[in-house]
Amino acid sequence: MTEAALTTADAGSAGDDRKAEHLAKLARMAGQIADFFKAYPDAEAVPAVADHINQFWTGGMRDAFIDAYSARPEDLPPLLRRALPLIRPARGS
């Protein structure tokens, strides 16, 4: 990761833009998942959203998402905010 971070850092702000774009995409994907399950009562929807992300996102994607939004969960829609603590970090991280 550090190597990769170094190479993107070379690109300066273009790298930051790409990181931001990548995060925005993850947030959008998570939002779509929450949109599907929001028709269910919270007791079912919250674990279902987290479970979907845990089953289909790589550890790296989950970590990036958790890192970015743990500090500012208010940026997430309510259901996703409640599901955030149930999203599993990558194994070994």
């Binding site: 190479t7 993107t8 690109a11 790298g15 790409r18 990181k19 990548h22 995409k25 790589t58 994607m61």
Partner: peptide, 11 residues
């Protein structure tokens, strides 16, 4: 799609 996103992202 994730591979391509991460490729653009540099990882």
């Amino acid at each position: 799609t994730n591979m391509l996103d991460e490729a653009v992202d540099g990882t």
